[in-house]
């Protein structure tokens, strides 16, 4: 008995390697199978192996702003056409589905999500031939969906729909560049309860983002309530010497916002 206790204590004290990932429990696996089946009824998915990378923090700094990156390794024989992101245990598990257009430089996407409880996060890459490649990670975070994320509602209302494009300081024509689109939007999940009015603050979120470069589609993103307030999307495109990037956003109340930016690559 004593030896066993000591042994157990030793196990508890042993530092875990930083990359330690918990293995999914049978319930986790069942949940994911259910979530996947909802979006891909009757279709089989295969482990992505090294064709798909999913970056997410083991423990989130802020459950309402959890950064996630999905990067697929492309295969010209069977290119990736869509990327999907799921937060398995969120009230609406699908965070987004991105259809990659001809102007996408690579099958990669970054965003920020709300995480409601400790959960598995899954990414699925869909290929032209109809294969589904999946990978997952466990993320420790809680309270992100019902947390009233709006720190300053007056300020948020004032800049609703405003957008910002971030590009690296230097990029060259013909070389893929990673861009970030920020959309100012409360992205209310509909799960935030107001104690005085005894009602839920109505859901009001960005549900579609269309990005075009010089008239060609980079990506079309369908989103749900899991995206963070002021949704952020990173994607890659290949700039020409001069061009225009256009973004069109619609939200769940049917409002739409459009903005475009001239993009001038430097160097040659």
């Amino acid at each position: 008995m004593k030896t066993r206790t000591l042994l157990l204590a030793g196990l508890l004290l042993a530092p875990l390697p930083a990359y330690a990932q918990e293995a999914p429990t049978p319930e986790d696996q069942e949940r994911w199978a259910y979530v996947r089946e909802t979006l891909f009824p009757g279709r089989k998915a295969e482990p992505a192996g090294d064709r798909l990378a999913l970056e997410a923090p083991n423990r989130a700094a802020d459950a309402s702003i959890v950064p996630i990156a999905v990067t697929a390794k492309d295969d010209p024989a069977d290119p990736v056409t869509k990327l999907h992101l799921f937060i398995d245990d969120n009230p609406v598990p699908r965070a987004l589905s991105a259809t990659l257009g001809p102007a996408a430089a690579r099958p990669a996407l970054e965003t920020r999500v709300r995480v409601n409880e400790y959960t598995w996060v899954h990414a699925v890459a869909e290929t032209k031939a109809g294969r589904l490649l999946e990978t997952g990670r466990f993320v420790k975070a809680s309270g992100g969906c019902s947390a009233p994320a709006l720190k300053d509602p007056a300020e948020a209302a004032a800049r609703l729909g405003r957008m910002k494009l971030n590009l690296p300081a230097d990029f060259r024509p013909g070389e893929p560049v990673k861009a970030q689109i920020l959309v100012s939007h409360p992205n209310n999940s509909g799960l935030q309860f107001d104690q005085v009015s005894r009602t839920y603050i109505p859901a009001h979120y960005v549900d579609k983002v269309l990005v075009r470069y010089n008239g060609q589609e980079v990506a079309t993103v369908e989103a749900d309530i899991s995206l963070s307030e002021d949704p952020s999307l990173h994607f890659a495109f290949t700039p020409e010497p001069t061009g225009t990037l256009e973004v069109e956003v619609t939200d769940s109340k049917g409002a739409s916002f459009k903005q475009s930016w001239p993009v001038a690559a430097r160097g040659s």
Partner: peptide, 15 residues
């Protein structure tokens, strides 16, 4: 404060 606390009260109590 009233609007801010009202929107957060339930979350605060449950936490």
């Amino acid at each position: 404060l009233p609007a801010a606390l009202s929107a957060r009260f339930e979350t605060y109590v449950s936490r």
